[in-house]
Nucleic acid binder design. Sequence first.
DNA 1: CGTCTATTTGAATGTACTCAAAAGCGGTGG
DNA 2: CCACCGCTTTTGAGTACATTCAAATAGACG
Lengths: 194, 194
Amino acid sequence: MNPDSILKNIARHITLDEQEKYFFLSLLQPKHAKRKEIILQAGFVNSDSIYVNNGVLRSFTVDENGVEHIVSFAPQDWWMADLYSYFSGQPAVQTIEVVEDAELFLLSRTHQDLLYERIPKFERFFRILIEKSLVSNQQRIIDNLSLPAKEQYLKFCKRYPTLINVLPRKYIASYIGVTPEFFSKMVSSLVKGK
Amino acid sequence: MNPDSILKNIARHITLDEQEKYFFLSLLQPKHAKRKEIILQAGFVNSDSIYVNNGVLRSFTVDENGVEHIVSFAPQDWWMADLYSYFSGQPAVQTIEVVEDAELFLLSRTHQDLLYERIPKFERFFRILIEKSLVSNQQRIIDNLSLPAKEQYLKFCKRYPTLINVLPRKYIASYIGVTPEFFSKMVSSLVKGK
DNA sequence: CGTCTATTTGAATGTACTCAAAAGCGGTGG
DNA sequence: CCACCGCTTTTGAGTACATTCAAATAGACG
């Protein structure tokens, strides 16, 4: 499995020499995973940060009525985890599942701590990741409060153009927070004009 | 203005000696602010982290129809900022306003960087703060997707018991994402029994 | 006491949901 | 290659949740 992409991902924020690169890569656990495969099951502790080398993941919760709610998608070059569980050590509230066959790199919490110790720059790297997630989560909350479903969908299209034709529509519906039925009607009303 | 509370806040995550405490406090700018006062105006760059020594703040955005949407409240002992602006240096999307007369400590970005340099432990402190915000924001997104307005309100009551009788109801309505009119009907239907 | 703002109430409307059923689509095995 | 199965998407009717607009009522403060 080719680690070029993850090294490039890191190089965007911090600079590593050859030895550091090597050490970092030695901490990763590569994993191939097929569509529908569960990477993390809600209720279990999430002890890995997951990097998506290619493929697509989704994370979701299941409410008391058994309805799934998609929290986020992770396309190529994204990191994913149930951060609540990851930070607190408590059982995860989210499930992480493969949407499109994927090559992943797993970085365990233990290895991550080791990494911080040996190459403190990585503190900075992951801090920046977290900062960015926080900002984008906040923006999502704002959109949720401000925008009707239609506009949230349009925004989604702009933001994840590569995902629109890859994801089942019902996943997009769930992400936006509407039923698949309503989503279908909404999209067809958009196409027809207005 | 008494800095005991902010020192206790920090002591929850990192340990400081007397000299470090003194240095930290020297970087803070105390500020008294009255109800309705704007601490940060959307459109301007947010270059301070704001600690609420007492009183209450709110942050909100204004949509294209001029409707306010409350992103978060900061009661006593909380930190607040427009993190998008703070991290990126771009104009803020949120406005921060005083809800109850407040005593604040402002920590400028410059001073915060100085702090990181002189007392690296603070990197850890603020990283933990950000991690916690991220987790709670994610939980809010999940609630938004999963729960009807009624249950979101009940959850809000449990989570911020001290705020319920302090905040104007229309602020809580806005935070939850409903109109004040609907909120009023919803609450009275809850009181009457189901 | 009067003014300003927050809250409540009501009627009409719109947005989104539920349930049921039909239609589409992709893969698999005969 | 076609028929069937399982799953996704669409369609429609009826319903529930939430909004808008207008107006009345209640509170807070000078």
